[in-house]
């Protein structure tokens, strides 16, 4: 298995609009390797989230090549891409998107159930992950009974449920206050330190500054790349 998880070569993404095509990502070349910690920052509308969506195989490039584990994603059908996301990629969203009718533990179990894990295996893994994010005591609470920071930590546990190699986070602290954001940032650092490659899209310079590699985008292109 290659060290590179996802490899984007000259990818662009254009959206057809009534007033003409809008190019959100323009000719970007980028690789994310095993265990990497990268942040993508830049002004609103610069194409950060669109690039993240392509890296996460939820969107396909209009041009260029995107390979995951060496396989061209464009050759995969919807079912295969779903399976790839389920087993290899974790997503954390700005708005958490926990299912409100399920408990924290059930939310974490959900992707495992979709992947076919047995019930007792799912239970153990959910408890393990909730302990990992420090919320084992909230396992039976519904999202409506959790704070924003707790919901995001449950969402991180859910993203890790199937042991993904790549975790993508789109503005993970966008809806949180500073103190809670710090807790989530520390947790994400820990996830990365434990071996999961992490790509964060953020406006928050503090969160971006924690990454070893910071990519700054402007007008759909990577304007600057800093590696520490």
């Amino acid at each position: 298995m290659s060290d590179v998880i996802v490899d984007a070569a000259n990818v662009s993404r254009a959206f057809e609009m009534p007033a003409g095509a809008v190019v959100a990502v323009r000719d970007v070349t980028l690789s994310i390797a095993q265990g990497e910690h990268a942040a993508i920052s830049g002004p609103s509308g610069c194409g950060k989230s669109t690039l993240l969506h392509m890296l996460g195989c939820v969107d396909t490039p209009s041009s260029g090549t995107l390979c995951f584990d060496g396989s061209d994603v464009s050759t995969l059908d919807d079912r295969a891409r779903s399976r790839l996301r389920l087993r290899q990629i974790g997503f954390v969203f700005q708005r958490f998107y926990l299912l409100p009718m399920l408990s924290a533990a059930e939310n974490v179990e959900l992707p495992q159930a979709e992947a076919g894990a047995a019930k007792d295996v799912r239970r153990l893994r959910s408890i393990e992950l909730l302990e990992y994010v420090g919320l084992e005591h909230r396992a039976n609470h519904r999202p409506s009974q959790l704070s924003g920071g707790e919901m995001q930590r449950v969402a991180i546990a859910r993203a890790l449920a199937n042991r993904p190699r790549l975790l993508l986070a789109d503005e993970p602290t966008g809806e949180l206050d500073q103190a809670t954001s710090e807790q989530v940032a520390v947790l994400l650092d820990r996830v990365n330190a434990d071996g999961t490659a992490l790509v964060i899209v953020t406006h928050d310079p503090d969160l971006a500054g924690r990454a070893r590699r910071v990519l700054t985008m402007k007008d759909g292109q990577i304007e600057q790349e800093v590696t520490r």
């Binding site: 996460g56 919807d78 779903s82 790839l84 990629i89 708005r95 998107y97 979709e114 859910r158 993203a159």
Partner: peptide
């Protein structure tokens, strides 16, 4: 719709 899109992003199949 957001929840459904999030589930799809997490790898839930169209059929599911």
């Amino acid at each position: 719709l957001g929840e459904v899109a999030a589930l799809r992003a997490l790898g839930f199949s169209q059929g599911r």
